[in-house]
Design a protein around this nucleic acid. Structure first.
Lengths: 192, 192
DNA sequence: GTTGCCATGTAAGGTGTTACATGATTTA
DNA sequence: TAAATCATGTAACACCTTACATGGCAAC
């Protein structure tokens, strides 16, 4: 999957310029792309070449001209086909798990600190996400059902972070069983 | 983060050849790379150039020679530094969420089918993961603490899939409230 | 005699990122 | 005068993927 279908999706609402889309992507978290120019402008050109979009130049006073892109019938049907296509499973790429895989080389304190820092990072991300959702999405939400979908998409993100947080808690409590065994020279202290 | 630290991690256990590593990556799920040659062999060359690895050619009878890579002291300290570095939050890239964002264009049946198919996909992935974990990991697990870490890494994957599954269930039950309202020609039914 | 394993490596391309370039207008 | 916004686009590069190339040996 690439960003093209997300662009088609937005253009199925109404026409946008590349600059509009760039801002939308930059704002949104669920649309996880960075919103960089390169990708968006090139995608628009390609979609246009494939006949999925039409473009129209809008002249403005005091501001540079903008290229408004409109979805074509072909684009609509391409979008619809993608919508009903086999969904991919989520891509789970968590660098931290790989860090953990060799974290037995750290002593108890270092490991505990790593987990605490990861937990803080997760909390921060959760906060950023909820804050971003609070200040309006660029989402017209024309029907109740669409509102429901968008609410659940946002909730998916929260749920993932919360799931991760509770996993970290479990891990920390599991690891407490081993504390004091890393430096076998020292004798064990009671739960420090 | 890139694959190099994962490679350093394995070599901190014992020397491996590129071919060994390729197989390890291909087997493992938590190490989410595909295990393709290009990346592994080039990473090994680069790590070698950076002085983090030493290589030694092992001649064999009946089989082609292999290059055994050994981690250097510099490599060990680079690994250790990475292990204690600021952990990144998980990268959440779930294409399905983007598919859902415009799924209001589908009718009730199509949408329900999409969710069912996604659920099946998740169950399948969960199964594949647990099956892969069941048949031995390439993990020596020298200490109890390391065993615990690897167990929790594997459990993280299960937890993520299960979290996703319960989210789909919730979504499906939410959507049942709207069924029958997709064709607006029909008159509106009670509470809206 | 084709397929598969061992073991190395390269080519080509997809996807995404940051940073740069231009040039006018508005705001501090 | 410096910066931010509007609006377009390009350059360079990082990372990752599939597929190809070679070549001997073993198994069916």
């Amino acid at each position: 999957m690439n960003i093209k279908f997300a662009i088609l999706g937005f253009l199925s609402w109404r026409p946008f310029s590349g600059y509009d889309l760039k801002k939308i992507f930059a704002q949104s978290q669920s649309l996880y792309w960075s919103g960089n120019n390169n990708q968006i402008y090139r995608s628009l050109v390609q979609l246009h070449q494939e006949g999925l979009l039409e473009s129209e130049i809008q002249l403005q006073e005091n501001n540079p001209a903008r290229k408004l892109y409109t979805i074509t019938a072909l684009g609509q049907s391409a979008l619809r086909e993608w919508l009903t296509s086999q969904p991919e499973p989520p891509q789970l790429r968590n660098t931290f798990l790989i860090q953990l895989a060799w974290a037995d080389q750290l002593d108890d304190k270092e490991l505990e600190k790593l987990l605490v820092v990861y937990e803080e990072e997760l909390k921060l991300q959760l906060l950023i996400h909820t804050e971003r959702e609070r200040r309006g999405s660029p989402n017209p939400a024309r029907t109740e059902r669409e509102k429901c979908l968008w609410r659940m998409i946002s909730q998916n993100w929260s749920a993932v972070y919360q799931n991760e947080l509770s996993w970290v808690h479990q891990l920390r409590s599991e690891l407490r069983k081993f504390s004091g065994q890393t430096e076998p020279k020292e004798r064990k202290k009671d739960h420090e």
